[in-house]
């Protein structure tokens, strides 16, 4: 069977110690037996490793940060589209999802397809809205409140018991054992990622995660549960293993079916010693460990592109349990000329 040729543009090429999902997504796409993918990388920084990984990324363009606004982003995409005829766009950062979702119609008119959650789905699963989300969909979530200042915290402190988890709106989370530590983490996260800050009840247990893909009609196209077996000092999984866990699968299917979730997602859960599952976060995109799902038999990046192209898909029915990943670092030798070209011309 002849493969379907498709041009896919995606971000998240920062394959560093806190990696974006770009490279793992690309690996899934490049291994597809159905798709013949030309990968167009979108990069924010000159030193994102993916720019120089030519066996995976065919061409990379520098793009403006989402915080620069819609127009600069769309202008750049328009230019790249003229050169490359982008057919599918996969934003891999939480921070750029809003911009791309808001621009979905414009992109569609340009002939660029996406497969993303709706704005409603995106907004209601925000960390700051988690208690309401849990109540609405019957999912256990830790108690949390949103604060914009430390005086806010002093006002609501009595509702919590230490330790608490201090979280940024998009990224970062720290466990604080007293008021001083809340203050330190509040300032640290606010300086880096802005306000508001979410204070979440600390649930003791083991963190487990699910990567999943919803078709937007309530069906779960694929889902693979995992436990991190090695966590870096930044709290990132540096190793993991797929699990056999029906309760995690049932919970994922329940959330996808009730919310009619469209696109990739990562569920972050805590399993307590009483075997209860608490949902601590929904990330509205495929995570950086998605290649583990590909290796376990569910090529979710390929499925996402096929859904974006309007294809009907049969859900995956199985995956290999006990499949492991171990990340490693690798010194890639790069050509100064390429760095120069990307730095000055914004493409390579």
């Amino acid at each position: 069977m002849e493969k379907i040729k498709v041009n896919v543009a995606l971000s998240g090429l920062n394959n560093i110690d806190n990696p974006g999902p770009g490279i793992p997504v690309i690996r899934g796409l490049k291994e597809s037996k159905i798709l013949d993918v030309r990968v167009i990388g979108l990069s924010y920084e000159n030193l994102e490793p993916g720019i120089y990984m030519h066996d995976l990324v065919d061409k990379t363009y520098k793009v403006p940060y989402p915080s620069d606004g819609f127009e600069p982003f769309l202008d750049r995409i328009r230019y790249i589209h003229e050169q490359e005829n982008i057919q599918v766009l996969i934003p891999n950062f939480d921070s750029e999802l809003f911009t791309v979702m808001k621009s979905e119609k414009i992109l569609q008119d340009m002939g660029i397809r996406t497969f993303l959650p709706t704005l409603k789905q995106f907004e209601e699963r925000h960390k700051s809205n988690l208690p309401e989300y849990g109540e609405k969909y019957g999912v256990k979530v830790p108690y949390s409140e949103t604060i914009t200042s430390l005086s806010d915290w002093r006002r609501i402190e009595s509702k919590f018991e230490y330790p608490v988890v201090v979280k940024g709106k998009f990224y970062d989370a720290h466990i604080a054992y007293d008021r001083d530590q809340v203050s330190i983490f509040f300032n640290k996260i606010a300086a880096k990622w802005g306000l508001p800050i979410v204070i979440q009840e600390f649930v003791r247990g083991t963190e487990v995660n699910v990567v999943a893909l919803g078709d937007g009609k309530g069906n779960t196209i694929g889902a693979v549960p995992m436990r991190k077996t090695y966590i870096t000092d930044k709290g990132k999984g540096w190793g993991g293993i797929t699990l056999q866990d029906q309760t995690m699968m049932d919970l994922t299917q329940k959330i996808i079916s009730q919310t009619q979730w469209r696109g990739g997602m990562e569920l972050e859960l805590i399993r307590t010693s009483k075997n209860e599952l608490f949902m601590i976060e929904i990330n509205p995109r495929l995570p950086a460990w998605v290649y583990l799902a590909v290796a376990a038999g569910q090529n979710l990046p390929e499925a996402l592109v096929l859904l974006a192209l309007g294809k009907e898909l049969k859900p995956f029915s199985q995956y290999e349990v006990g499949k492991m990943f171990i990340r490693y670092s690798y010194d890639m030798i790069c050509d100064m000329k390429e760095f120069e070209e990307f730095s000055t011309r914004g493409e390579v």
Binding site: T206, M226, G240, I241, L243, D245, V321
Partner: peptide, 17 residues
């Protein structure tokens, strides 16, 4: 039931990893 035991004495719990 989620436990697999190999001949080498390696024990793997597929439920917890």
């Amino acid at each position: 039931s989620t436990i697999a035991i190999s001949d080498s004495g390696f024990v793997f719990d597929a439920g917890t990893g």
